[in-house]
Amino acid sequence: MKKGVSVGFILAGVYWIVMSFSYGLWVMNGPGGGFMPLIGGILAVIFGIAVLIEAIKEGTSPSFDFKVLIPVGALLAVIILSKLIGLILSIAVYLFIWLKFYEKESTKLTILVTILCPLACYLIFVMWLKAPLPRGILGIL
């Protein structure tokens, strides 16, 4: 996977280099918008190639584990759910499902955390810091 990742970064670097020209390299007596992107892009390509060479020499490297999608998917689900029932409640739902079914923790512990954690978040973020968290269409919490 190391080879794939480094190739990805090299391509990103190339993209940055190409775009930097359209942002203007030297404008009004000084660096334009494309100045830094160009430098960043060039460095990324140079070092990306270096890492790629290293990767080829090394042979094997850890591969992409699709388990990654589990936490990512869970959080995305929380976000989508929050549009309906608000963030605090959807986090409570997430905690419950995750602890009970994925981690297979005891029911007692699950319920304890499912209640305390969102409560803590509510108290600290909503009541004290007055940071309004999404309430969802249903308008609760």
Partner: peptide
């Protein structure tokens, strides 16, 4: 690898308004 990370940081930092234009 470290220098590649530095370069990536520079690239991500350039997302957004540029100060000149």
């Amino acid at each position: 690898a470290g220098l590649l990370a530095t370069a990536l940081g520079m690239m991500i930092a350039t997302v957004g308004f540029d100060k000149a234009l």
